[in-house]
Nucleic acid binder design. Structure first.
Lengths: 225, 225
DNA sequence: TCGATACTCAAGTGATTGTTTGAGGATGAG
DNA sequence: CTCATCCTCAAACAATCACTTGAGTATCGA
């Protein structure tokens, strides 16, 4: 009797921890991690995501259903489109916790990051608090270099929008002030690309340490539309 | 050239996000999640963990090496024993973030939890702050119901140690004060077992909302030895 | 009603993973 | 040295997973 109770507890405990692990399973794919990072900017349709991921529609749909089954995303239908979004802010925090652990614990991560983002040594960064102060002092021009839909879904007040396929518009920014570019987050290339272009043109340019989702989550002011 | 650059970026981005996902992969097993929960109490030897998990030594070793390869745990040799421990507090926070998301987003989780822990409706809980206040007022007896090694590795100052295989020693606790039991964390049975036993015996007993690792991480006082 | 678009589903394939088994390496005791 | 203990490694199997292909469903506009 005591034996069977212990065995039953074992089975129940395994089932409970398999339940916890189901969350990690859902994130245990680079493609699904990319999806979460994209959905952190706001909701997206399936084929929008498929295009951004460079994956087939069917495969993207499959990944999204895996995330939905785990409870990490929800969907809503709008005509023929289905829009997916993160289920809650907890999911964002989990994703960020994962990113943090990866950055500090995975040996090859720095190498992988610079393989995608390029050498970052030359790129100057600025923290949220510093940026807030310099914005209020009117010292900087803030540039949002994310695609249109993401800018529309929310951006820093007063930010100039320069979508990534029109980076040449950076050349027309009024002179005299430093430029701070931001994008999706610390592992997004857009702001790096912008800062490199501006620096090459002889301007002082910096990138915000992290992206809009982190800014919003930290309670920073955000404008939509 | 622009095409090949875009394709190269795609490959590099996939590799980077596969790097992030490697962390989730390491946690994407109920057995490994149990290992992390156990290591949250302090370092443990391989066969100690194997016994606690109800898994073979070889399999436990294999899981530990998977966690080590992902950078989540480290090991040190002591004679014939190899002791594993969590690599950093970030790992703890990641595990807790995962637990939180699971609790709020996985539909079946409540059911799985009560399958292991039993109905918890009747068990009264107390928060960290409340407990600190009542301890300082001398109003409660605090009982640590974890196994010996974990108590030795750190416990609440003044806590009485009643290991889970000697729960009958609860009957000898001095009367007149409420009893607060704590154990490994919110998904550990030991404190529940203790509270149920005390309640059945007619005493007022509560369980601390979470366990020692959460207490320590929140800056609560901890005694070792 | 018809076609087009956006998405989901099912089946299949190659790759990866969890577990067991059995052998082998490292350490300490005698 | 030999033996026992603790742990790791390699091989092998079934189970699971990622992605593709092709078919099927839902919605909208004409």
């Amino acid at each position: 009797m005591a034996v069977s109770t212990a065995a039953a507890r074992r089975v129940a405990k395994d089932a409970l921890f398999d339940g916890f692990a189901s969350i990690a399973k859902a994130l245990a794919s680079g493609r699904r991690a990319e999806i979460v990072e994209l959905l952190a900017q706001g909701e997206r349709s399936v084929d929008d995501l498929a295009g951004e991921l460079g994956q087939s529609l069917a495969n993207t749909s499959h990944h999204l259903r895996t995330l939905a089954r785990a409870g990490l995303v929800t969907s809503r239908r709008d005509g023929t489109h289905v829009h997916y979004r993160l289920a809650s802010d907890d999911v964002l925090e989990l994703w960020w916790a994962m990113r943090t652990v990866a950055a500090t614990r995975v040996d090859r991560l720095e190498e992988l990051a610079s393989g995608y983002l390029g050498r970052r040594g030359e790129i100057e960064t600025i923290s949220r608090d510093e940026l807030l102060a310099r914005v209020e002092a009117g010292e900087v021009i803030v540039v949002d270099v994310r695609p249109r839909a993401e800018y529309a879904a929310g951006h820093l007040p007063g930010a100039v929008h320069v979508p990534p396929d029109e980076l040449d518009r950076l050349d027309a920014l009024p002179a005299g002030r430093d430029v701070v570019a931001y994008c999706r987050g610390p592992y997004c290339v857009y702001a790096d690309d912008a800062v490199r272009r501006l620096t090459r043109a002889g301007r002082r340019a910096l990138r915000l340490e992290d992206g809009l989702p982190e800014w919003r989550h930290a309670g920073g002011p955000v404008t939509t539309g």
